[in-house]
Design a protein around this nucleic acid. Structure first.
Length: 112
DNA sequence: TCAGTGACTGACC
DNA sequence: GGGTCAGCCACTG
């Protein structure tokens, strides 16, 4: 399941859970960190499957430009944005403002 | 087994 | 600056 870091999904969950409060990362960054940069879609798919696991802050994972591409997968139409704003992240029109400022790179900040 | 699909990304035009 | 295409891989019917 989510805690099993032996498979790709498990690794994705493990990384996403390490994202600090008030920070965000991208699908590509996670994929690259896991050694599968070309498999960013799998990260997104993992998020799709992670909605059953509340411990996975999927709202902190956005695409490479900071756009909340997965907002429609959250219950409300703006739940994802509200969650980010509640963490002090500026979000405008479903897009993170100063994305680079809040960006958290697992390859640099994390060390598996 | 095969084909379609997707919460992505980079390259090209 | 924005639209399109191909590559990537797991899941579903």
């Amino acid at each position: 399941m989510a805690e099993d870091n032996t498979n790709f999904f498990g690794k994705v969950y493990a990384v996403v859970k390490q994202v600090p409060y008030g920070r965000v990362t991208s699908y590509g960054a996670i994929a690259a960190f896991l050694g599968a940069k070309r498999s960013a879609r799998m990260v997104g798919w993992a998020m799709n499957a992670s909605h059953v696991d509340n411990n996975v802050p999927a709202h902190r994972v956005v695409n490479r430009v900071g756009l909340l591409s997965g907002k429609h997968h959250f219950e409300g139409t703006n739940l994802m944005q509200q969650l980010l704003e509640s963490e002090g992240i500026e979000v405008e029109d479903y897009k993170i403002v100063d994305f680079a400022k809040y960006f958290w790179d697992p390859a640099k900040e994390l060390d598996f």
